[in-house]
Nucleic acid binder design. Sequence first.
DNA 1: ATTGTTGTATTAATATACTAATACAATGAT
DNA 2: ATCATTGTATTAGTATATTAATACAACAAT
Lengths: 121, 121
Amino acid sequence: MPWQLKNDRQIWLQLAQILTQRIVSGQYAPGVRMPSVRDLAAEAGVNPNTMQRALVYLEERGLVSAQRNTGRYVTQDAQLISDTRHALAQEELTLFCEKMRLLGFTPEETSQLLKSKGESE
Amino acid sequence: MPWQLKNDRQIWLQLAQILTQRIVSGQYAPGVRMPSVRDLAAEAGVNPNTMQRALVYLEERGLVSAQRNTGRYVTQDAQLISDTRHALAQEELTLFCEKMRLLGFTPEETSQLLKSKGESE
DNA sequence: ATTGTTGTATTAATATACTAATACAATGAT
DNA sequence: ATCATTGTATTAGTATATTAATACAACAAT
């Protein structure tokens, strides 16, 4: 799974988003130990400080916790993970609908476009 | 219509996006004269240079053209506007689907969520 | 003819993001 | 006991984004 970073948004925000996606999608399972900050940074091709910032962000949301000298672990709180997953989905949904509205598409048209796209794959 | 700017993305990119939305949604009709760079900048609360950069971006895409000393005008090419509108919609659609996929939602689930959202409003 | 407005260009200053290079204390492995 | 690895913190340097302050040439309006 590549770290596809763009330069149109702050790197640490993109890192935090990717890490969150990996947790809520189960790629990083509840309770498991995550790679070290340095390893993650090397893998993503960024400075450890930048990766650290992303991890702190996740920590503030309770998605990971750092055992000071043994490593960092994904939360075991399945409910929190599930809640986060659905909250993020709702957020994306709302943003997407708003953008489509600003482009002049009605909710019905938007829904139809999405359906068409799904069927064409 | 407010200029709701966040600080998580480059300002001129956000300005360009908003201006484009206003054109493809018909808020700035084909052929009409746009407010001056300075007026747009003042309205959006940004520096004229930043607004200028956004306008150049639109100009590179043919959506507006600058008559050197009389002002700037929206293109009269209705086809280009329509094409741009649909291209942007497809882009948003693709990005949205990809994000939902990364959150662990199938296309069917995503489609269903969107439909539910539309019906609940 | 003068004045104001247009788009455009230039230069400097400031704020921020990211990288770089360390350092430290605590722990597990050897 | 020694050593490598852990998260964390600090400081400096560099690149970029944005603002700020102008300036200019061309045209419209007066």
